[in-house]
C-alpha cells in the first residue's frame, strides 16, 4: 500500500521506474520470514531464554563456519559430501533409468520386478546402514551405495510410470506412420517420459541428501555429517547448527539446479 501511495504522489516517471523493480526483487520477500527468525533467534539466546550451550547465537554459528573455512577444514568436508551425493545419485539414477525403462516397456519385467521394488522402497534409510556396514565395510563404497539406494527409487518409480503412461494416441500415430520399435521409442516414448524422469531425479537428489546424513553420521571420518556428529562429541552446538544449515543450503542448491534443468528441457 505504501508503494502505491508513493507512486501516486511522485507521478508517472517514478511509477515507470518503480514497478519493474518491484517485480524483479519480488523473490526477496522469501527472505523476510527467515530474517525475522534469525533476529528472534538472536534475541531469545541473548535474553537467556535459551542457554548458549544449547543454542548458540546466529553470530556464533557464522563465526564457527568462518573459522572452519578459514582453516580449510570445512572445504574438505563439503567436497567429500558433495562427491558422495554426486556419485550416489549417478549410480542410483543410472540403475533407476535402466530398471524403470525395462519395467515401463515390458509387462513381463514389470510383473517380475515391480512388486519387489515397490516393497523395498519403504525400507527407511537408517535400516540399511548396519547391513551395508556388514557387507561393504566402512569405506567410500558403502556410503555411495547407500546414497544410490536412496536416489534409485524416485527415479525408478517415476520413469517406469512415465513410460507406461505415454499417451496411447501418440503410440497410434507412431504405428500408423510405421516408425518401428526403435524409432518410436526414440522419437515418441522417451521424449514423452523425460518430464517424469526429471521429477524422479529431483526426488532422487532430495533423498540422496537424507541418505548421506545417515551414512556419514554412523561411519565417517570426514564429511558434513561427520562434522555434525563431531560437534555433538565436542559439545559445540555452533558446529552442529552450522552443519545443519550447510545441509539445507547445499540441498537447496542442488534442487534448484535440477529444477532449472527441468524448466529448460520440458515444454509445456
Amino acid at each position: 500500500m505504501a508503494t502505491t501511495r508513493e507512486t501516486g504522489r511522485t507521478g508517472a516517471e517514478a511509477a515507470a521506474g518503480l514497478l519493474p523493480d518491484a517485480d524483479r526483487f519480488r523473490w526477496l520477500l522469501g527472505l523476510v520470514v527467515p530474517a525475522a527468525i534469525v533476529v528472534a533467534w538472536h534475541l531469545l539466546v541473548a535474553t537467556g531464554v535459551f542457554a548458549a550451550h544449547q543454542l548458540p547465537t546466529p553470530l556464533r554459528v557464522v563465526e564457527a563456519l568462518y573459522g572452519l573455512s578459514a582453516s580449510g577444514e570445512l572445504w574438505g568436508h563439503v567436497a567429500i559430501t558433495v562427491q558422495r551425493v554426486f556419485l550416489g545419485v549417478l549410480l542410483g539414477a543410472s540403475v533407476g533409468v535402466v530398471l524403470g525403462t525395462l519395467t515401463g516397456l515390458s509387462g513381463l519385467a514389470a510383473d517380475l520386478l515391480d512388486p519387489l521394488l515397490q516393497s523395498l522402497k519403504n525400507i527407511p534409510s537408517l535400516a540399511w546402514v548396519p547391513l551395508f556396514l556388514l557387507w561393504f565395510g566402512i569405506g567410500e563404497g558403502a556410503k555411495v551405495l547407500l546414497i544410490a539406494v536412496g536416489a534409485f527409487f524416485p527415479v525408478y518409480l517415476n520413469l517406469s510410470t512415465g513410460i507406461g503412461e505415454v499417451s496411447e494416441d501418440l503410440l497410434e500415430v507412431a504405428e500408423v506412420y510405421d516408425l518401428g520399435r526403435v524409432e518410436s521409442l526414440r522419437r515418441v516414448v522417451f521424449p514423452a517420459a523425460v518430464p517424469s524422469l526429471l521429477v524422479g531425479i529431483r526426488g532422487g537428489v532430495g533423498l540422496a541428501w537424507m541418505f548421506v546424513v545417515a551414512a556419514e553420521l554412523i561411519a565417517a571420518s570426514e564429511g558434513i555429517g561427520f562434522l555434525l556428529s563431531d560437534g555433538r562429541v565436542l559439545a559445540r552446538p555452533d558446529i552442529i547448527v552450522g552443519s545443519v544449515l550447510l545441509f539445507a543450503f547445499l540441498g537447496n542448491l542442488s534442487d534448484l539446479a535440477v529444477k532449472e534443468v527441468k524448466n529448460r528441457v520440458v515444454v509445456r
Binding site: D169, L170, V176, A192, V266
Partner: peptide, 13 residues
C-alpha cells in the same frame, strides 16, 4: 496415412 480427429502432435518437437 491418417489424420486423426485430434492433431496428436509431439508437444516437445
Amino acid at each position: 496415412g491418417m489424420v486423426f480427429q485430434e492433431p496428436r502432435l509431439l508437444a516437445w518437437a
